[in-house]
Amino acid sequence: MSFAATMLVALVLDAGIGWPDPLYKRVGHPVVWIGNLISLCEQRWNAGPRNRRIVFGTLTVLLVTGLPMALAALVALILPGGWAGVALTGLLAWPFVAVRSLHDHVAEVARPLGGGDLDGARQAVAMIVGRDITQLDTGGVARAGIESLAENASDGVIAPLFWGVVLGLPGIVGYKAINTMDSMIGHRTDRYEAFGKAAARLDDGVNWIPARITAALFALGTPRRLAHASRVVRRDAAAHRSPNAGWPEGAMAGILGVRLSGPRVYATHRVEEPWLNAGAPDPAARDMRRALRTYMRGMALAGGLLLALAVL
């Protein structure tokens, strides 16, 4: 229950003020510190035969996850008890939740797209996806933004909160280390496939429950679309390239009545992916705004659940 209270503090802080630029300029950000450690390990150890890369990639996972978790556990031990401890732990957990920054990044795409500025929307969406933006029409930009919003609602908000409720401060720190590793080295490319294999598999495991919770929060936050969202998830989520992302993306597709995922073009290759909610139209700018409202309702429900757990 105290863990739920600390995660509620972190969620409220981030939703209210995000991570302010002056604070970032002064102290940086804990996720950036973790990323620097990952980069150091990758530069030193990602070389040689495939088996060696797998071994050292696994060692990287143990180091990058274990060291921050151990430090977080030590800090948690020396914090005071009671409400002072709850407040301080929530303050320390705050930078590991990204509810506001995710909303703001996707809103930066929706704004020019809604004004007919396709080039501006392409430049904004390039900040959150890795696709070849020159190949994106209006529907492609909207799809990319909505998919990023749905998937990262799980990775950036619900999953860290979930592991924070389960394991306290070490849980939210450890999850963020795993997820950062996956985003940096968990790619199916010649350079990262072997070295990042353990990181990618572990990330799939720790996101399994949160992704399904996120889908449920989206659907429950829009009761009139609950049945259709549930049908899309049951039918299409398992076909997604990710064992987890298809759940929140499928729920969002069903709620909005649009199709998501599908083929996409990157700088070096084209990927053929099945559609989520095939047969529905491509999303438009107004659907991005609807997606943002769906996201905020889901996050408000998450806050309500944390509050209920805290006072249970």
Rank of each mutant, 00 (worst) to 15 (best):
G174Y: 03
L59C: 13
V61N: 05
L59S: 06
A280M: 13
M288N: 02
V97R: 02
G246I: 09
H105T: 04
G186H: 01
R235D: 02
S101T: 12
A110T: 00
D190Q: 15
A10I: 07
H29W: 04
P223F: 15
M127H: 09
A227G: 05
L202H: 06
V173E: 04
A215F: 06
V165Y: 03
V258R: 15
E151C: 12
H105K: 05
G114C: 03
R201S: 07
I38N: 10
G18K: 12
D119G: 14
E272Q: 14
A238T: 08
R53N: 10
G116Y: 07
A238P: 01
L88Y: 03
G174V: 09
L77K: 13
A200H: 10
M69L: 02
F162A: 02
V86I: 14
A126I: 06
I17Q: 09
G35A: 06
F96W: 09
A142K: 10
A84S: 04
N207V: 14
T180R: 10
V165F: 01
R235I: 01
D137N: 15
A4M: 08
L301M: 08
M184P: 06
P283F: 00
W19C: 05
T60V: 03
L113A: 05
R212H: 04
P243L: 00
P281Y: 08
R286Q: 15
E249V: 03
R212A: 06
P248L: 10
E249G: 05
G221D: 07
G28E: 09
R231L: 13
A300H: 10
N46F: 07
T294F: 01
A73S: 15
L169M: 00
G16E: 05
E249F: 12
V32L: 15
R100L: 03
V32G: 11
T138P: 09
Y266S: 04
L305T: 00
I158C: 14
T189W: 11
I34V: 14
V106D: 01
R100S: 06
A251E: 11
G116F: 06
W275P: 07
T134P: 03
A219P: 10
G82K: 07
V86P: 03
R259Q: 13
I128V: 12
G81S: 13
N244W: 00
L202I: 12
R225T: 11
L136E: 00
W208R: 11
T268K: 13
E272T: 15
P112C: 10
V31M: 06
L149D: 00
G196N: 04
A227C: 09
I158H: 04
G81W: 05
V97F: 03
A5K: 10
I255N: 00
A308Q: 07
A159S: 15
P20R: 14
K176E: 03
